[in-house]
């Protein structure tokens, strides 16, 4: 394992963000737009009679945390797509960089992108809506960590599928995380879901995270049970995703598809 190679590949993407306005927009534009539109909608609804207490806190907290999951997934899959779009993938895979180093550098990249996006969103939420996400307190750390790890697991699986099925599967990079949104109970409690979706939500780490977030905002005790569930599921999913990627990488090499994806 070479930290120098991991860093070199990370630098390759940082150069890209320095030079490409569309890529920079991808990090800031959509999250900021989300926050503006849904933030003002939330503000409006919270002023109506019969609004749920702490509606703004619930909604904006959920919006920012969901974006953390989404961006951590995209930090992996879109960075991988960058190499396909620029026909650079083969250059990477004929270099001494191993598949493990490649995945680790994607994780590293996703953290950097996440920090940039989150900083902007948190600052803007405080500035526009006087919403301070840090009022969630210490619980915020494990909540965020669990969302990041789930985003990574989804991102690694998505990347493996794109590797296997080529650019036709690139739509997954934008769509797969959203598939989990209804059962993640981001903006509503799990109890609202019909029984069969509640059953699914039990196995989605994000659902436990958002339940935990709501418990903290309501002033209940530290959501240890929800976090234990989320962590346990995430450990399983991240191991599964890495094994899935490794297995797919072997299949792709056996089928001679690696060069086709990269050209």
């Amino acid at each position: 394992m070479s930290f120098q190679r991991i860093l070199a590949y990370t630098v390759r993407h940082l150069y890209l963000y320095k030079r490409s306005m569309p890529r920079l927009m991808e990090v800031f534009y959509w999250p900021v737009l989300d926050l503006l539109v849904w933030g003002f909608v939330t503000l409006y609804l919270s002023r109506q009679s019969g609004a749920v207490p702490q509606f703004v806190t619930f909604f904006l907290g959920a919006l920012i945390l969901w974006d953390i999951l989404f961006r951590s997934q995209q930090g992996i899959s879109v960075s991988f797509l960058e190499d396909i779009w620029s026909r650079n993938l083969l250059n990477i895979f004929v270099s001494p960089m191993s598949a493990v180093e490649y995945v680790l550098s994607l994780l590293f990249l996703s953290i950097i992108k996440l920090l940039l996006t989150s900083t902007v969103m948190v600052t803007l939420a405080w500035f526009l809506y006087h919403f301070n996400i840090f009022t969630i307190g210490f619980a915020l750390v494990p909540l965020i960590l669990n969302l990041v790890v789930m985003g990574w697991a989804v991102g690694i699986v998505t990347t493996a599928l794109i590797l296997r099925f080529g650019q036709e599967a690139e739509v997954l990079a934008w769509g797969v995380a959203l598939l989990f949104q209804p059962v993640s109970a981001v903006f509503y409690p799990v109890a609202v879901l019909p029984w069969f979706l509640r059953a699914v939500a039990n196995y989605v780490p994000a659902a436990h995270v958002f339940e935990g977030m709501r418990m903290v905002i309501e002033g209940q005790a530290f959501p240890a049970r929800e976090l234990a569930w989320a962590t346990g599921l995430n450990v399983f999913y991240i191991i599964f995703s890495v094994l899935f990627f490794y297995w797919n990488f072997k299949v792709v090499k056996r089928k001679g598809l690696l060069a086709k994806v990269g050209e």
Binding site: Y9, R12, L16, R19, R23, S86, N88, P96
Partner: peptide, 30 residues
């Protein structure tokens, strides 16, 4: 580490300058 490859069918990241691209690969190859 001791081998390299070039093909007219592959390229390098378009947004990076020539120097940046070569710097990235220099670091990948140590």
């Amino acid at each position: 580490r001791q081998v390299n490859f070039s093909s007219s069918y592959i390229s390098l990241p378009y947004s990076l300058t020539v120097e940046e691209n070569l710097t990235v690969f220099s670091r990948l190859y140590g």
